[in-house]
């Protein structure tokens, strides 16, 4: 009895540690999944984020081929971290458009010069309204849009090298 009491603190700690370990390896998915997945893009028409290419509207997507829509900002460090993966996707033939959140043309230009430029079109969303309409709650996020303009896949957070195959698979599935 006495001995058992002495080991009780250790036992309690081990239960606690097991619980935390379980949580670590099965992290609760607390990211906010957009309700828009499976639905058509909301109507929007954004002005150009940079002078050298057109802005972005929802009508640009319903043209028969799937496209990747990347929501980013030049002030966001994870966006810089995912840039090489976007360039890689572009090389693999994925058409990529972007929505820049609360950004300035000169900052976007600087960002693209530094980290690579995979974008065909860039729309400027100065007050996050399109982002919100898309059901996105942070930057970066990426959406796979199929040829009919329907949102097929949402990727929350930066695209890491290990996510590239998932994105490619989602693009293929959207053909």
């Amino acid at each position: 009895m006495k001995k058992a009491i002495l080991w009780a603190p250790l036992a309690m700690f081990l239960i606690f540690a097991a619980m935390v370990a379980g949580k670590l390896y099965a992290p609760g998915d607390s990211s906010i999944v957009s309700h828009m997945v499976g639905k058509p893009l909301p109507a929007f028409a954004l002005p150009a984020g940079m002078p050298d290419r057109p802005g972005l509207a929802n009508t640009d997507f319903a043209k028969g081929k799937p496209r990747l829509l990347n929501i980013f900002a030049s002030w966001c460090v994870p966006c810089a971290a995912e840039a090489p993966q976007l360039v890689e996707l572009r090389k693999a033939g994925v058409e990529i458009d972007a929505i820049a959140i609360r950004d300035r043309p000169e900052d976007i230009a600087e960002f693209l010069k530094r980290y690579g430029d995979p974008y065909a079109r860039i729309g400027s969303d100065a007050n996050s309204s399109v982002q919100v309409a898309m059901g996105s709650s942070g930057v970066p996020e990426s959406f796979v849009i199929d040829g009919q303009g329907i949102i097929r896949h949402q990727h929350i957070g930066d695209i890491r090298p290990e996510n590239v195959p998932d994105i490619l698979a989602a693009i293929r599935a959207a053909q």
Partner: peptide
């Protein structure tokens, strides 16, 4: 049946 909120949490933009 109305939900009376005393706190509103909004999702933060800079999540990452």
């Amino acid at each position: 049946g109305t939900f009376v909120a005393d706190t509103i949490l909004a999702k933060h933009d800079e999540r990452y």
